[in-house]
């Protein structure tokens, strides 16, 4: 961390989505400071595509739904704007085509899901190797420049688990109503 303490800040947005059976997807965005302290959280109600959308979007349905639709909406809603978005879902990288800040995926290259996108550039941040959308490979340079603001061993997957838990809690509460 820099000696100037609070002068250099990095706000991270952790974006995740969970599927609710029969009701579509619920997305959540947690904005934290560089130390993982939560600043703001926004989540959606379930979003369900209709049959036409399912047919016409085909393989692009999830990227459209999670990235463009849910991700963009959440990013517009948060009052504390993050400097970059982190996700573990490669489909959410689609969001990068609709916003001006970097979107990085924490997904390990050995994961079966990582093959869904043509991801080449990587950057090290915290204890993770991050990967980027094929059309925005320059984002890795931004991340490399900012990585000194994060504690070396910061686990960038952990806040995503918090988002998942918060989404599950929200779903339980909403379903019970």
């Amino acid at each position: 961390m820099s000696n100037s303490g609070h002068s250099e800040q990095l706000r991270l947005g952790f974006l995740a989505a969970v599927e609710v059976e029969g009701r579509g997807y619920v997305g959540g965005l947690l904005v934290t400071n560089q130390n993982g302290r939560p600043l703001e959280f926004q989540c959606t109600t379930p979003v369900k595509p209709d049959r036409t959308q399912e047919i016409l979007y085909g393989k692009m349905l999830r990227p459209w739904l999670l990235g463009e639709l849910i991700g963009q909406t959440l990013l517009q809603r948060v009052s504390i704007k993050p400097d970059m978005i982190l996700t573990s879902d490669p489909d959410i990288l689609e969001l990068r085509n609709h916003i001006d800040i970097p979107v990085a995926c924490t997904l390990d290259s050995t994961s079966s899901r990582s093959g869904q996108l043509d991801i080449e550039a990587t950057a090290q941040m915290g204890g993770r190797k991050l990967r980027f959308h094929s059309t925005h490979q320059d984002d890795s340079k931004f991340v490399t420049r900012q990585s000194h603001l994060l504690p070396g061993q910061a686990d960038l997957e952990e806040p995503l688990e918090r988002v998942q838990e918060a989404l599950n809690e929200t779903i339980r509460t909403v379903m019970a109503r």
Partner: peptide, 22 residues
């Protein structure tokens, strides 16, 4: 393409007390 209307639930966390830098 129809934009599906999305409702959001939000929570802003309190800012907390400012401490001396570490």
């Amino acid at each position: 393409p129809r934009r599906i209307p999305i409702k959001c639930i939000g929570l802003t966390l309190p800012e907390g007390l400012a401490f001396q830098p570490t």
